[in-house]
Design a protein around this nucleic acid. Sequence first.
RNA 1: GGCGUCGUACCCAAGCGGUCUAAGGGAACGGUUUGCAAAACCGUCUUUCGUCGGUUCGAAUCCGACCGACGCCUCCA
Length: 461
Amino acid sequence: MPLRLYNTSSRNLEEFEPSNGNKVTMYSCGPTVYTYAHIGNFRTFVFMDLLKRYLKFLGYEVNHVMNITDVDDKIIQRCSEEDRSREDLTREFTDAFFKDMESLNIEPASKYPKATDHIEEMQSLIAQLITKDYAYQSKDGSIYFRLDKYPDYGRLSKIDREGLAQTERVSNDEYDKGSIHDFALWKAWKEEDGDIAWDSHWGRGRPGWHIECSAMSMHYLGETFDIHTGGIDLMFPHHENEVAQCVCATGLTFAKYWLHNEHLVIDGAKMSKSAENFYTLRDLLNKGHSSTEIRYLLLSTHYKQKVNLTFEGLRAAASAVERLRELKRKLEKSAVDVENAADQGPIGDFREAMNDNLNISAGLAVIFDWARELNRRLDNEGLSAFEASEALSFLSKIDSVLGVIEDEEIELSKEDLELIKERETARREQNWSRSDEIRDYFKKKGILLEDTPDGTIAVSI
RNA sequence: GGCGUCGUACCCAAGCGGUCUAAGGGAACGGUUUGCAAAACCGUCUUUCGUCGGUUCGAAUCCGACCGACGCCUCCA
């Protein structure tokens, strides 16, 4: 079975066929950098990482662009509250964002364009829309998109405009607009914006939120590209508006495949600051959870399904990862030439599972089935050095998708290595008190010594 | 009101009409193994899939009703 993905555009599973051979163009909505990203944001980023890693596993080359929103209402508000410059604030949280991404072992995108570095591209897109009469300037100088001119509006998110008209939130928010649903492409400068403004043909101001993704995605990936990802909440209005802007400007299809991931909930409830169940990655790390177990938990639930973050779930994730890592350590004990070993394992079954719209649960089941069988053999007849190498090679291939098995090796000092040797001698001589003494010494350092038929393994606790 | 999602054994979770007396992970309990551990392996928790009906030779899977949880409808990953 070829790779099939659920395309929000058609609300159907579709066979994935990139426009340009094995080159895939992919755009993901990134963070607004006015505070630390929360763990729910990272569910989304881990999902796009899984998708990208899997495409690469299948042999695709992925050109992945993720924007950094470094100008918007919340940023301006934060700057004014803290009396900081926009540059200063957004630099701090952009840095924090990249640090968190790295900690979750999320592979960097090919490019992370900042909105403020692409004001020109946005302005030129707006100009095109004005020329084609899809946009107009209101009395206050802002530029709005003219929804009435675009009958397909609402197609992606299945929102119908009649329904829109009835929501209170909109009607309470009247502007000098042609229609109350028209959205801003360019926001005219207001006093509270301070010095956060750029010159344009239409006067000083700043870009609307949606225009940055339209301008930057097309700038880096072309007017039509393969995959657009984002959290399910962005479907409307953000992605709907992106589509409107691009399609009206170019007359072409914008993104071919739209992939939206579900949200994360905490103990089954929506995460919110008032419910006191709001966590950043840092919060969880400070509570003693590892970034690996967090990544595994975020990864192990299908992306179209809400993932429930619980502390019990995190512990379960940690155990599951440890199971695979333990197997890897055992294999390493007897492997020889991993570099040259062909991978040997149920790679086809794994691919089959993942090709079904990234059915990670089924994929993991394949891996754990394989792991149990291998452990059984290790317990019974044992593996040859060559077989162990082949198994390791398989594990490494799988981990190129999962990104949770590879672990930093414990660094043992010369003295520690000597002690381990001494213990092995003591054990041979049945000197159990000395042997246990050494094991206790390591335990106090947070290292567990496990005795296997192939020798002693040091594991960090 | 509109659009959409979901309810599977102690917990998480796959399943998309027969191979389901339900994959996989976690927890617990027993056993094997081990100098003791740790890890691993074996077994139990599993005739059951929110409830009630219907369709079918056959349903966790399709249809209907009901109950329950939830998301979006211009702040939002």
